[in-house]
Amino acid sequence: MAVFTPVSDDDARQLLKQYNLGELVSLRGISAGIENTNYFLNTTQGEYILTLFEVLTHEQLPFYIELMHHLASAGQLVPEPQTGLNGQRITTLHNKPCSIVTKLEGGYEPEPSSEHCRQAATAMARMHLAAQDFPIRQDNLRGLSWWQSNAPKVLPFLSPEQADLLQSVLSEQSNYAQTEQYLSLPRGPSHCDLFRDNVLFAGTHENPQLGGFIDFYFAGCDTWIFDIAVGVNDWCIDRLTGALQIEKAQAWLSAYAQVRPYTDAERAAWPIIIQAAALRFWISRLYDFHLPRPAQTLKPHDPRHFERVLQQRRQFGVPALP
């Protein structure tokens, strides 16, 4: 973990007194993740995840927690935040905001098949539609304004060729965001970080069963086509080269469209938006790699991966939306 806050069994027992979730059975830390401290929390009533938020504040959390609650209440496969005896879904432990959510079934699939892509895309489309009436609005905090603010901070670490690529794409995205076409794109609450390790599957590789989406703490209101692009750029590629695997990409794009058909504006925007999704993670990985937080102990991801993804999208394009 990036920042780890120890939680003892006694801490957990005291915390559970604020809920109606039974008595503590076991507590075990989860090693994955770079933003928050997570524990598997098992009680006499069920299995849960305890999260202590190391970066997000009490004031910032309601969008994420209430979005999950809204989606779970609508029947979507997402962790359901538990409500305390005081009616609140956010509390405090070790002077940090925390929450308890239900544990979903399954584990993440490191080598997804076309069937995994179809199931994830179908669930994403249903999630987008289910979130339309969510009343809290918050922009994607890692959107264009964040790229514009942080790109200058990482440029000193780049070669002239890399800096030219980053600045060129950022300029294109900044200009495109002012167009009528971009402003007409359907949008709403989105996951914005739906990598393969944020989706759980039960069953077997040959017969997967979607367990659900996790880690909503980069969610925000953005164009739905951007959310799709983030997914395709991780699920449907050769990890060594960043090249698209066309069969998987077509499976993803077609499955999504069966739930929510694309608009003409989305079809036109697709080639530039999928570059935006690559740029977002190239900049954030450059930032985490070269300017890590002081307490971060987990090795950051190699930023060159999304540089390759971006170059692939610019050189070879993408299959058209159905």
Rank of each mutant, 00 (worst) to 15 (best):
V232D: 06
L170N: 07
A120M: 12
L194K: 01
D238V: 15
L71P: 03
N207C: 06
Q173H: 13
I246F: 03
L21K: 05
K17L: 09
Q167K: 11
T37I: 01
C192E: 07
L166I: 08
T102Q: 05
T43R: 00
E59V: 07
K299Q: 15
F157T: 04
R280M: 00
R308Q: 14
L298Q: 13
I65K: 00
K299T: 15
Q14R: 15
N20A: 14
S114R: 11
F281D: 04
A276F: 14
Q14S: 12
I272V: 15
A257T: 01
P79R: 06
R196I: 14
R142T: 07
I283H: 00
T57F: 10
Y108A: 04
I34P: 00
M68L: 11
R89E: 05
Q311T: 10
G203D: 05
R267K: 15
A32G: 05
N86V: 06
V25C: 02
A2M: 02
A229W: 03
Q245A: 07
R313S: 05
Y262L: 05
A12N: 06
A320P: 01
A320W: 03
T43P: 00
L200M: 02
R118Y: 00
Q173S: 10
Q138T: 06
Q162S: 14
Y217N: 09
W235I: 00
M127A: 09
L291V: 11
P112F: 07
Q315I: 02
